[in-house]
Design a protein around this nucleic acid. Structure first.
Lengths: 139, 139
DNA sequence: TCCCATACTTGACGACTCCAAGCTTTTTCT
DNA sequence: AGAAAAAGCTTGGAGTCGTCAAGTATGGGA
């Protein structure tokens, strides 16, 4: 196995792991009445920090701002988030989790972290994995 | 950082790495005239092995068989794949890369493997990463 | 032969995504 | 201050993606 095909194998493994985790969480998304894209958006909302603006959410999701409008509409309708104009700049809308949204996000994170293939690794292995991934992503 | 949030961090890292790789390849997909889903399908076609049937492709992509019909239509129209009935069972259609398809796939794989954040790791680190990911995925 | 399972296709519908255009609010320039 | 430019969000249109249900053709077994 030469260097190129090792990287190729790693790409496949990373992709497979990401998809496998998604698949394990599908039933929870169904129970919450949300889709994959909505779950991604919920995932971005930190329960303990100030909510992002629409534009910041678009940057985090790497999508068009108008897509965030579409997603926020649905999350708001489900009462998982609120969308309020910022006091200092009324052009921007700030997204914030509701209590129901926090509960939904908690269920999502709980299911993902317990069911992902990563959970099968020991703590030492997870620490090693964290080191390698962090190095690759920040180098 | 407790065990749960370590797993959470790892999930974010794996997801971020998968997305980062996609993003680095976007321009190549544009040049090839294909979308993300079509690139995924092309990625599944082994240039050195017998092509899969539509159904096998659907299983590999974890999607509905009718979606493969849709994707194969476009790949065939772009002259990247052929779709021929299998001789022994004319119900099944076998997908195969054309020369142009092989070239397109090579460009895709080449761009992905050289631009992915994983490529920043040394060979030893990649081997370690491969061991950890394989263990998680097969355990 | 008749029945049924398998493989693919088609049509319908909803979800996702981008782009271009429009509106409101803020900032900048004169 | 007033006009112009910029920023942020929303709307409308189009194309892609994905599933489900129904239809067609082929293969296999009673």
């Amino acid at each position: 196995m030469d260097g190129e095909s090792l990287t190729y194998q790693l790409l496949r493994l990373v992709h497979a792991m990401d998809r496998a985790t998604d698949e394990q969480v599908r039933d929870v998304m169904g129970e919450l009445g949300i889709t994959h894209a909505l779950a991604d958006a919920l995932w971005q909302l930190d329960p303990d920090a100030a909510g992002p603006t629409m534009r910041e959410m678009a940057a985090a999701l790497r999508c068009d701002p108008s897509t965030v409008t579409f997603l926020a509409d649905r999350l708001e309708h489900l009462s998982y988030v609120t969308r309020a104009p910022a006091p200092h700049d009324r052009r921007t809308k700030v997204l914030a989790l509701t209590d129901a949204g926090r509960a939904a996000r908690r269920r999502l994170v709980e299911a993902a972290t317990t069911r992902t293939p990563i959970a099968r690794l020991s703590r030492e292995e997870q620490v090693a994995l964290h080191g390698l991934l962090t190095k690759a992503m920040t180098a």
